[in-house]
Amino acid sequence: MNESEEKKEVKKTNRRRKKTPEVKKSINHWKVAFLVLIGFLIGSIVFVFIRVTQVREPNYKPIPELVEKEGTPVIAIQSNKKQVNALIDFYLEDFQKGSEITYKFYLENEAMLNGTFEVLGHPIQFYLYFDPYVMDNGNVQLKAKSLSVGTLGLPIKEILKFVQRDYKLPSWVEVNPDDSTVLLRLDQFRMQNGLFIRAEKINLVDDDIRMNIYLPKDSTDKKEGSN
Rank of each mutant, 00 (worst) to 15 (best):
L107Y: 02
K18E: 06
F130P: 00
K19P: 06
E224K: 11
Q96S: 10
Q188T: 15
K143E: 05
M191A: 12
Q188F: 08
L195V: 09
S79L: 03
P73Q: 11
N2M: 04
E6I: 08
P155F: 01
T116E: 11
N212Q: 09
A144Y: 01
L204R: 01
T20G: 11
M1H: 04
A76S: 09
N80P: 15
F196Y: 15
I75D: 10
L128D: 01
G121F: 03
G115H: 01
N137Y: 05
E93N: 06
M112W: 00
Y60K: 07
S171K: 15
D136C: 13
L147P: 02
A111I: 00
Q164D: 06
V67E: 13
M135V: 14
E6N: 06
N193K: 08
I197D: 12
E57F: 03
L154P: 05
L152C: 14
N14V: 14
N212G: 06
L195P: 00
S4F: 14
K31W: 08
I45T: 08
V149Q: 01
N59H: 03
E100C: 07
I50T: 09
E108N: 00
Q83I: 09
K25L: 05
I77R: 02
D178I: 07
G194I: 01
K24C: 11
F117R: 00
K12Y: 07
Y133G: 10
E100L: 05
F90V: 14
Y106S: 03
P132V: 04
G43Q: 04
V67W: 11
S180L: 10
F95V: 05
K223S: 15
S146M: 08
G121L: 07
F49V: 09
A144E: 00
F162Q: 02
L195T: 14
F196W: 15
I101F: 12
F105K: 00
Y103D: 07
Y60M: 13
